[in-house]
Computed example of a mutant assay.
Amino acid sequence: MATLQEIADWYQERADRHCGHSEWFEITQRDVNTFADVTRDWQEIHVDPDRAATGPFGAPVAHGFLVLSLITFLTDSLLDLDWSESGLNQRLDRVRFRAPAVVGRGLRAGVTIVSSRSRPRGYLELVLSISIEAEDGSVVCTAEQTRLYQVRTDASLPRFPVLETETPRAKTRP
């Protein structure tokens, strides 16, 4: 059994290390349209492929907040979270939208562990530096995400994050 402090120390020992990249995830027009319906953001650059083709990006692009909402999905395959009971997204800092996420192209996430520490009420705080990149090599978005996790009573130390040379676990689309 591993304690909260032992797990926090395990991640902290890996601070400043790149954990690798997630599998590629294709942003579809259906994804963008569904997100537009939920958020009521129906700008033509997102939802009208014909009009978007004549716009600044030459094709429809995903909403920036859609890209942000995929961070947890894209990054969880790079972290062993079997020790956690539940997780909460606490904050996003230093968010920058650097390039458009063109519909029909793949995105993936790169993760670096920034820090880890135990917090009150049995939470582990994990801070990650995240870079979302497109298939053409452009960086779409960067952010620093802080997550809080409750540790399971039967937790063991994590077996990984993926560190540079290993292959991430595949994750299926929800």
Rank of each mutant, 00 (worst) to 15 (best):
I113E: 02
Q145R: 09
W83A: 06
G137V: 11
G87E: 12
S156F: 08
L88D: 02
G137N: 13
Q29F: 10
K171W: 05
Q12P: 00
G104T: 10
T3Y: 05
S129W: 05
G87A: 12
A15C: 08
S69F: 10
S116D: 11
N89W: 01
L107Q: 09
L107C: 11
V151T: 10
R117H: 13
S86A: 14
V140Y: 00
T34G: 08
D82R: 14
V32K: 10
S22K: 00
E13C: 07
A99G: 08
G122N: 10
G122C: 12
I113S: 10
G122R: 09
F25C: 06
S77F: 03
W42H: 15
F57G: 00
R98L: 15
P49W: 10
S118H: 08
E125I: 01
S84A: 15
A143Q: 12
A99F: 02
D76I: 07
Q29A: 10
G87F: 09
S129E: 15
R169D: 03
R94K: 15
R91F: 02
A99P: 02
P60N: 04
F57C: 00
C141S: 14
A52W: 00
E166C: 01
E166R: 04
F73K: 14
T165Q: 09
F25W: 13
E44F: 10
S138E: 14
L70C: 12
A36Y: 01
A155E: 01
F160D: 05
F57S: 00
N89Q: 03
E133K: 04
L92M: 11
T167A: 02
G137S: 09
S129R: 14
S129K: 12
E144H: 04
V95N: 06
V32H: 07
D16C: 04
D82I: 02
I7G: 02
P161K: 03
V47A: 11
G20N: 14
D48L: 05
S118K: 04
W24R: 09
D41Y: 08
L66G: 06
I71S: 02
S115D: 07
D31P: 11
C19I: 08
S22D: 03
D9R: 02
E6S: 12
